[in-house]
């Protein structure tokens, strides 16, 4: 009986996603159809002859009525067929997989960095309100949210890579060594292969791009944690916890954070979108072979099939992550009813 509302709520939230996913598919489908002029002509360039243009139009299904084109597109993506790259001629779903793993590895570590640093900085700022320990991190957070991510990446490369020579600035691992891929997550694959030297190399390659990508979300998380904690620390139960002699650390981290975390969760969910979008820029700077770089290269080649699929996959990931955050939010804050 107790878990029924949770299941009903989860099912309803998933059901509500259907029209959104449907709308996303329409927008992504429209990318190729909205190109001004003849898409086949644009893809092949001005010098293409009429025969090859006609052939490409047929291959892309552009000679069919619009509703039929969309029907076929939807049917294909539902079966996991993301189409064929116009440049390499390979199935996009196969090409995309290693790129997706690279992006997942990068964004996951960027998020871990952002959450750990952001939440703790926010807590300490709220705890030491109106002191230098509060002002300095909050000033840095303001700089953090105002910084272009690609510039931060370049500055990190300059300082830590080129001046101090502490960390590598390009790629996922040492280019002279081939990582035997099983999961396409290099940290896992190198561990599975028992190659600890390569594992360490992969970790070192991950640090700078993850820091660059995670800095802006970290700044937002720190600001949100601070304001949420300030709200919570005013409450009577915090005063009671202090009155009964509980150590300040436990008051703040146990009673405070537990109650302040729900709004922070929402920001974390929204920041996933920033991470996925920011991945395009970070991956371009650090030569990280993820989905962002895959899309960026496809724009250069006018490979619209790849652009469509890359954007579709990232949007779907964003939707799913937000669903998970939404469900966790209700779990973390029992006052929210499953309506």
């Amino acid at each position: 009986m107790g878990c029924k509302p949770v299941i009903r709520y989860t099912a309803r939230r998933i059901f509500q996603l259907i029209p959104v996913l449907f709308g996303v598919s329409i927008i992504v489908f429209a990318i190729i159809n909205l190109i001004p002029g003849d898409p086949a002509q644009v893809i092949l360039g001005e010098r293409a002859d009429a025969e090859s243009i006609q052939k490409l139009r047929h291959e892309l299904g552009l000679d069919l009525p619009l509703y039929q084109q969309y029907g076929n597109y939807l049917l294909n993506i539902l079966q996991g067929d993301l189409g064929t790259s116009l440049v390499t001629g390979k199935a996009i779903s196969e090409e995309l997989l290693p790129h997706l793993a690279a992006t997942a590895e990068l964004t996951l570590f960027a998020m871990i960095f952002a959450v750990i640093v952001g939440v703790n900085v926010g807590i300490v700022s709220a705890w030491k309100r109106n002191t230098w320990i509060d002002y300095i991190p909050m000033l840095l957070a303001l700089v953090g949210v105002s910084m272009p991510i690609f510039w931060l990446g370049l500055m990190e490369q300059w300082l830590f890579g080129l001046q101090l020579e502490w960390l590598p600035v390009l790629g996922r691992n040492d280019p002279r060594v081939t990582v035997e891929t099983i999961t396409h997550f290099y940290l896992i694959d190198t561990l599975l292969a028992g190659n600890y030297e390569q594992f360490w190399s992969s970790v070192r390659h991950l640090i700078l791009p993850a820091m660059a990508l995670g800095t802006i979300p970290m700044a937002y998380i720190a600001r949100m944690t601070r304001s949420s904690m300030l709200e919570v620390l005013k409450h009577d139960y915090v005063r009671t916890a202090r009155a009964k002699g509980l150590h300040e650390f436990f008051v703040v981290y146990k009673h405070g954070l537990k109650n302040a975390f729900a709004p922070v969760m929402t920001i974390i969910g929204l920041e996933v979108g920033r991470l996925l979008g920011g991945a395009v820029l970070t991956e371009t700077i650090f030569g990280w072979p993820g989905v962002g770089q895959y899309i960026y290269n496809a724009i250069g080649y006018r490979d619209y099939a790849v652009i469509q699929s890359g954007i579709l996959v990232l949007a779907v990931i964003f939707i799913v992550v937000n669903l998970i955050v939404d469900l966790l939010y209700s779990y973390l804050d029992p006052r929210i009813q499953y309506k």
């Binding site: 959104v20 920033r274 652009i307 990232l314």
Partner: peptide
């Protein structure tokens, strides 16, 4: 329509 547009990470939709 707003929900669908917000389902895309902002910069990615701008790139598209």
């Amino acid at each position: 329509i707003f929900d669908v547009m917000l389902a895309f990470p902002g910069i990615l939709l701008a790139i598209a």
